[in-house]
Nucleic acid binder design. Structure first.
Lengths: 345, 345
DNA sequence: TTGTAAGCGTTATCAA
DNA sequence: TTGATAACGCTTACAA
């Protein structure tokens, strides 16, 4: 049978003091309490194994010490790393981390945001989402605004229709750089495998790709633009499309590592050798990127750090409201074995 | 400035009814309320954008609709999959999922368990931990007991010093089977790379390995037992050790996939070809297992399903307390390209 | 069918 | 320095 935990009244009673004083010592408030009574209370609390009820505390205090991460899928290594960074900082500061998988579905995002509001989550970190547009833009922003009004903090870690302070990796720049790297290797026909349609991160990376190609004076052939969906199977499908082309590009740039892994697998299954037959690169630098054979040339994002910074931003926001800012973090190209200089076949 | 959200009193006032009736319609209790007043209340709630404060509700109801997962590291694909399964079921049933990274550290486990108790988490799922022994065994079990006493449910998903209902994959059996598979391929000298010392899962898998070897009448050479730590870098170190041996085994069984990936990388860097020079297999069947080259022969665990079952067990436990049970789930061997029949060199 | 009021476990205000 | 007491927002006896 469920027996309730001792409350502060039990402690007060046992110590022979009022709940007020008991509370004062348990909540380690600055309010003066004599050493003698403090001892008595502590003693009683100890004996009863008393610990304060966080729910009651939160209700009273109007904040919960709850921090949430909205991710597309916590099993996706990209999000997993970010979430890890968040949890780390949260834990350090006495916050609990709530994990929310949205599958990039605005409706799920909305539902979670509402629930989180009901729980008075102090901070919400949104990552891995962000369509260019959705019918729910206003909806989402309305909720976010309400969250902010009641004192909650919201931060996005990727482009999103939600208006909030944001910390992001330089998607355009990173894509431009890695494309420029392929160009510097002598490649001229470079394919690009995108993410799901209308997802902004994918568009931004495509933009970087296009900028680099344009700067090199190369017209992008329509068949070089292949649709993916950020998953390995999407990459495999892209590989198939690639092998069907009349003229094979000499390099492919996948807009994220998972896609690149899928491509690698798919292409190799079709008998293509990487990098001899085609150079391949990704974006993200997941832990697996250096493990696959050949190891993957990619854009390194400090994912865990991104999560940490997001959490720190939340903490800062909670301390004192600040102007909404957008911070763009630089990233670096990691050259590995999946790319080699262009050679005539 | 932070403006508080409307409470049920605001709704009651606006609807011109008592808080009791307002509450009755908002909490969709079975208590009879006339259609007319129900409408009025709903209307008022709508206009005020009222949603009930979950903290207050939880405080009153003595349960929080909070479910926690304790994992070693949420960025480890193994745990990530399990956590995903948990979140899925939790979300379906209106529970929020709290993610706790313990790094297998009993002290961190204890801290989290305490915090979770303070938040009145309804359910706690513990996975990825479990030393054979620790100085904190009694501590941990004391907290778990208190959690259960106050009505919370605890389930473990891997061997652990914590006494609680448990659902686990068949570690011994799986290891025995896959070792038997290697034997059936003609291998006789089979190395085993373990996890961190004293971690029970690792011991169980080693046990399975030993059982199979024994059944085949093969004495295990001491040098075949190599210490790993469940990580890729641990696998790489093991690879190095392996290459130093005077007599090379013809196969290695890594006690988890991450270790196998590290081995694969390390061995290949030393110029060993897999599977020609040595057959390799793992345990877990992470998504990456079929992506690496060569693809990895391993024991498939339905990880996500394990998480789902864990969450369902919690839900069942919450509904009505049951006898603590230990459920062992079968697993299956996935034969891929990292293993081939033994051949003389 | 509706309302009043107590209580969940805290903390903070006000008096003493 | 200590103690009553109200309040946080909700649900539920108990009355009406």
């Amino acid at each position: 049978m469920a027996t309730p935990l001792p409350s502060i009244v039990a402690v007060a009673k046992k110590a022979g003091v009022s709940v007020a004083t008991a509370s004062r010592v348990m909540s380690s408030s600055t309010y003066p309490v004599s050493e003698a009574t403090r001892e008595k209370v502590l003693q009683a609390a100890q004996e009863l194994h008393y610990t304060p009820n966080s729910l009651a505390r939160s209700l009273k205090a109007q904040h919960s010490k709850l921090l949430a991460v909205l991710v597309g899928d916590n099993a996706d290594p990209y999000f997993a790393q970010v979430a890890r960074g968040v949890e780390e900082i949260a834990n350090e500061h006495g916050y609990l981390t709530i994990m929310c998988n949205t599958e990039r579905d605005p409706i799920r995002e909305r539902t979670y945001l509402n629930t989180l509001q009901d729980y008075r989550a102090d901070g919400i970190i949104i990552t891995g989402s962000g369509y260019n547009h959705t019918d729910y833009t206003d909806d989402l922003n309305a909720i976010v605004q309400k969250i902010q009004q009641r004192g909650g903090a919201v931060v996005t870690l990727s482009p999103h229709v939600i208006q909030a302070p944001s910390i992001q990796t330089d998607n355009v720049g990173g894509a431009r750089e890695i494309t420029a790297y392929l160009l510097s290797l002598g490649h001229r026909s470079i394919a690009f495998v995108s993410g799901p349609e209308d997802v902004t991160v994918s568009d931004q990376r495509q933009q970087g790709y296009q900028q680099a190609m344009e700067a090199a004076g190369i017209a992008i052939h329509p068949t070089w633009l292949i649709q993916g969906d950020f998953t390995q199977s999407g990459g495999e499908r892209a590989a198939y499309q690639l092998t069907q082309l009349a003229e094979r590009p000499s390099a492919v740039f996948a807009c994220n590592d998972e896609t690149a892994f899928g491509l690698m697998n798919g292409l190799q299954q079709q008998g293509w050798r990487i990098p001899q037959d085609i150079s391949l690169c990704g974006f993200g630098d997941l832990p697996m990127a250096k493990m696959v054979v050949p190891s993957l040339t990619t854009v390194h994002i400090a994912l865990r750090e991104l999560g940490q910074k997001g959490a720190q931003k939340i903490l800062a926001l909670l301390k004192e409201p600040q102007e909404p800012t957008e911070e763009i973090l630089p990233n670096t190209i990691i050259k590995r074995n999946s790319t080699i200089p262009f050679t005539e076949h």
